[in-house]
């Protein structure tokens, strides 16, 4: 058996045992033995999860969504609607709320709890008006000097005809443009799926946190495998190649902190996951709030300016060959 098959078999066994445990608990039987077995297996399966396992956790149907975090972390939440240009996008939440008693602007991708709600919210895949609503709230935060908390959880920006007609790319670019220049403190948390430009549009901030089993990628593993090997089934290899886990991104300098989750994923204990996220948000917001706005904008610029890896090539290999004017310096 390969490692991957072995892992999949253990995951299946864990699922079966968890189900069995739930049934026994419901019937009032003694579960101490089984609980110990489940815990041991859970640790074996999740001690060093494969990237694909993390992808599955990030997409788990029971994974806490924006709504779960809103009720557990914030108080006095008022959702605000509409981009004042075209309409209101149910795939993006934007509003005012209190964090630790202080008013903040909260923006996030809004996935649904069930299929019906997900159809309505397009599985959290925004149209341009969603990003324009977000940008409107960012500007409001700037005007009032309120901090921004952005919660990222989207497979992608919605790929649709109307999205293109209304300028999906422009909406994303403009939202990023607004965020990089915002005077307000901005703290971002990737809570589930960080789907490329659709995530980054509201994911640029002074601090970017990432939940332990969230993912953040320039392309979904399935799409990557289809391009690379013309075989979407090799998604597990692609998930490894893309370096999309929180730990990977911490090492690449893209995120500032990994927020711990309960073993096996936030859905196993949403209260504990939310408490950890709350603690991290409060701490980072406190730190970036202490800076004067100009200093904050400068630091944010430098933070993104530093991202990426490149080197200097030896000069003899550098000159582009077929443009005679490249050497013609004036």
């Amino acid at each position: 058996m390969t490692d991957a098959q072995d892992r999949a078999a253990r995951e299946r066994e864990l699922e079966q045992l968890e189900e069995q445990l739930a049934q026994m608990r419901a019937s009032g039987a003694d579960t101490a033995d089984l609980e110990a077995r489940v815990q041991a297996l859970r640790e074996a399966v999740w001690r060093h999860p494969s990237p694909w396992q993390v992808v599955q956790a990030a997409r788990h149907p029971q994974r806490p969504k924006l709504g779960d975090y809103l009720t557990r972390i914030f108080t006095d939440v008022v959702e605000l609607h509409g981009d004042r240009l075209f309409g209101d996008d149910p795939a993006v939440f934007a509003g005012l709320a209190r964090l630790d008693g202080e008013p903040v602007v909260v923006v996030g991708h809004h996935k649904g709890k069930d299929t019906r709600e997900n159809v309505y919210r397009r599985w959290g895949m925004p149209n341009p008006e969603g990003y324009r609503k977000a940008a409107r709230l960012f500007r409001l935060a700037d005007k009032l000097g309120l901090p921004v908390v952005a919660l990222v959880d989207t497979p992608a920006a919605y790929p649709g005809v109307e999205a293109e007609e209304r300028g999906q790319a422009e909406a994303i670019a403009r939202s990023i443009f607004t965020l990089v220049q915002l005077r307000s403190p901005v703290v971002v948390a990737i809570t589930g799926e960080g789907g490329s430009g659709g995530a980054l549009a509201i994911g640029v901030g002074d601090r970017v946190l990432m939940m332990q089993y969230a993912i953040y990628s320039v392309i979904p593993p399935e799409g990557c495998a289809a391009i690379l090997w013309r075989d979407a089934a090799r998604k597990e290899e692609a998930a490894s190649a893309l370096k999309l886990t929180a730990q990977d991104l911490l090492e690449l300098g893209v995120v500032d902190e990994v927020v711990p989750e309960p073993l096996g994923g936030a859905h196993r204990d949403p209260d504990r996951a939310a408490a950890a996220l709350h603690e991290a948000l409060t701490r980072h917001l406190g730190e970036v709030r202490a800076l004067p706005p100009e200093e904050r904008i400068r630091c944010r610029y430098d933070k993104y300016r530093r991202m990426g890896r490149f080197s200097l090539r030896p000069a003899h290999a550098a000159a582009p060959s077929d443009d005679p004017r490249s050497a013609d310096v004036r």
């Binding site: 953040y216 990628s217 370096k243 999309l244």
Partner: peptide, 9 residues
């Protein structure tokens, strides 16, 4: 990977 995505920002 995501380093390319950060070039947007």
């Amino acid at each position: 990977g995501v380093l390319s995505l950060m070039q947007l920002a």
